[in-house]
């Protein structure tokens, strides 16, 4: 995604990792969650829109993981901990509106 961190030269290739992840969110879960956040009961969710929102959510999770992972590698840890996630949160929140 919107990564411009090539400076540390580690062996992360975000695109290949992101395309290899098979898990995803269940569509009906996201649908229920979106429906519960609608204020107007008349609003409906199209099928293609639901697929796209699921993909956006998956992107968000993967992006957070990849950024936290590169942060962990930079700190030479082999476990991604809370501090690594916290460190990359502000930029992530700017990149995902």
């Amino acid at each position: 995604m919107a990564r411009n961190t090539k400076e540390n030269g580690d062996s992360i290739d975000p695109a290949s990792v992101a395309s290899n992840v098979k898990c995803s969110f269940k569509q009906d879960i996201i649908k229920d969650l979106l429906n519960s956040s609608f204020q107007d009961n008349k609003t409906k969710l199209g099928n293609d829109a639901l697929t796209l929102v699921v993909e956006v959510a998956k992107c968000l999770v993967q992006e957070t993981c990849l950024r936290a992972s590169s942060q962990a590698l930079r700190d030479s840890c082999d476990k991604v901990d809370l501090e690594h996630v916290e460190k990359c949160l502000p930029q992530l929140m700017l990149d995902f509106p």
């Binding site: 992360i12 990792v17 992101a18 290899n20 992840v21 098979k22 898990c23 995803s24 969110f25 998956k58 999770v61 993967q62 993981c65 990849l66 936290a68 992972s69 962990a72 590698l73 082999d78 476990k79 991604v80 901990d81 809370l82 690594h84 996630v85």
Partner: peptide
């Protein structure tokens, strides 16, 4: 959690539960 652990395992890293 399943997406997180899969992504990080592809990179050879562990993810802690709080993260």
């Amino acid at each position: 959690k399943s997406i997180c652990s899969e992504t990080c395992h592809l990179l050879g890293l562990e993810v802690t539960k709080p993260a």
